[in-house]
Write a protein that binds this DNA or RNA. Structure first.
Lengths: 144, 144
DNA sequence: AGATAATCATACAAATGCAGTAGGAATATA
DNA sequence: TATATTCCTACTGCATTTGTATGATTATCT
């Protein structure tokens, strides 16, 4: 039960954008180098973010990407779920209503629901702003 | 990020065994029918449980499987992890020590650690005895 | 002893998802 | 017009998942 590279890459990309919100738009190529990710692969990932209006793209030279909102308005769970799909640990819990015919007598479901809640609460607890702040704290430690 | 059928089937199998601890050994065939799982597939899963000494097998006619310990001595996480492998949400957290070269400057790691903890705490919170009890409560409700 | 009922072992296979690679089209800048 | 960037889509290799299939082994019962 792993988070895929797509989800993790998307989050790292979003952190980079959040940290450069005041400067020029951020190019995929640069992120790819800094984060050691295939640029072509990152392109596919960012295109999902663009379509969801999480980021805005600027084409042509001096182009790149920018967040459309403030970092504190993106919670980690939103980004992960957008790229990764539903994060429910079992498919019974994906939709609003459970379609599993066994659900009435299924005691394991109770565990999965609790697990789902736990996962959700961690992922929805932090925003990009938190991650940016941690990153800045980290960098400071290294400079000193 | 889903729990596989193998892990879920294993848990349901273990619940069946826990509920029949006093009676005859439980046959795979019967569990397969009741739980609507391929018997041959279940055989493969149970063999892992046998090798780990989570259950004992009795061969030949009137044979089947039995728990080796009391239901309250199996926590859900143990069963899931045995069948499913490590449940850490990222591979960096699989081993005792993190081998990722990026770890020192990786802020997302903090999220994944917290997520790992949350998952672990839910899965390790309940034992087979809890599940058996819930199952019995459920059945009662239907009888009345 | 022999038929039978169960577990045990292993190989195979179809489907799916993951993690990219590849090639080029579209667009904006200088 | 050359260039730098995003955008689009197809393809591919690999691993994992979810089983099937076949038969060997072992114990029981008549």
């Amino acid at each position: 039960m792993k988070i895929s590279t797509r989800g993790r890459y998307a989050l790292r990309l979003m952190i980079e954008l959040a940290m450069n919100q005041d400067g020029d738009p951020v190019r995929i190529k640069d992120v790819a180098v800094r984060q050691d990710i295939s640029a072509k692969y990152l392109e596919q990932i960012v295109s999902v973010l663009v379509k969801a209006r999480y980021v805005r793209s600027i084409r042509g030279p001096q182009g790149g990407y920018r967040l459309t909102r403030k970092p504190e308005e993106y919670c980690v769970g939103d980004i992960i779920r957008l790229i990764e799909g539903d994060m429910a640990p079992v498919s019974c819990l994906e939709d609003e209503e459970n379609h599993c015919p066994r659900q009435a007598g299924c005691v394991t479901l109770r565990i999965w629901k609790e697990l789902d809640e736990a996962i959700r609460s961690v992922l929805d607890k932090y925003t990009l702003a938190d991650l940016v702040q941690w990153q800045e704290e980290l960098s400071q430690n290294y400079v000193i």
